[in-house]
C-alpha cells in the first residue's frame, strides 16, 4: 500500500472541492493507504471545533473526526488559521498545527501527491 498526501486549499463552504477531498481521503484510507491531509488557505477555517451541522449547510467536523479515527494525519497551517481568527484551543482535537514545511516533509515520503487548489 502507498502513501498519499493531499494539500487542500478551498473552503468548506461555496464549492464541492473540499467535500471531494475528504471523500477521496476516506476512500484511500479505506483501501489501506496511508493518507496525510494538509489544510491551507480557506480550508483552515474548517478545523474549528463545535460546528453545528445544519442540514442545509456544508460541514466538516464530523467528517474530519471520522478521518482522524481511521488514522488519517490532518494538519492545518498555523498562520492561515490564526489569520482567520481560529486559536489552537478552539480547534478539533487531533488536528495538528504546524507550518508549511509539514506539508513538504509529508510530500517527501509520499508515493502520490494531490494539490487541491482553492480560491
Amino acid at each position: 500500500m502507498g502513501t498519499l498526501t493531499i494539500g487542500c486549499f478551498p473552503g468548506v463552504v461555496g464549492n464541492m472541492t473540499y467535500d471531494f477531498t475528504l471523500k477521496l481521503a476516506e476512500a484511500a484510507v479505506d483501501k489501506g493507504h496511508k493518507v496525510n491531509l494538509w489544510f491551507s488557505g480557506n480550508a483552515t477555517s474548517s478545523i474549528k471545533a463545535n460546528q453545528k451541522h445544519l442540514k442545509d449547510y456544508p460541514t466538516a467536523e464530523i467528517y474530519l473526526k471520522a478521518l482522524l479515527e481511521k488514522g488519517v494525519e490532518i494538519c492545518t497551517c498555523e498562520a492561515c488559521s490564526l489569520s482567520r481568527g481560529i486559536k489552537k484551543p478552539e480547534g478539533i482535537e487531533g488536528v495538528q498545527w504546524n507550518a508549511m514545511h509539514w506539508y513538504l516533509a509529508k510530500i517527501h515520503g509520499s508515493d502520490r501527491v494531490l494539490q487541491i487548489g482553492g480560491e
Binding site: S40, M100, H101, Y103, L104, A105, I107, H108, G117, E119
Partner: peptide, 30 residues
C-alpha cells in the same frame, strides 16, 4: 485573483526549513 497562487510561493520558500522534519540527507527541492 487567488490566495492559493500566493500560497504557492510561501510553500516553496518553506523548503528552507523542511530539513528539521526529515532524516539526514533528505530534502525537497522545489
Amino acid at each position: 485573483k487567488s490566495e492559493s497562487s500566493r500560497l504557492a510561493i510561501t510553500h516553496a520558500i518553506a523548503y528552507q526549513t523542511v530539513e528539521v522534519l526529515l532524516d539526514d540527507g533528505d530534502n525537497v527541492i522545489p
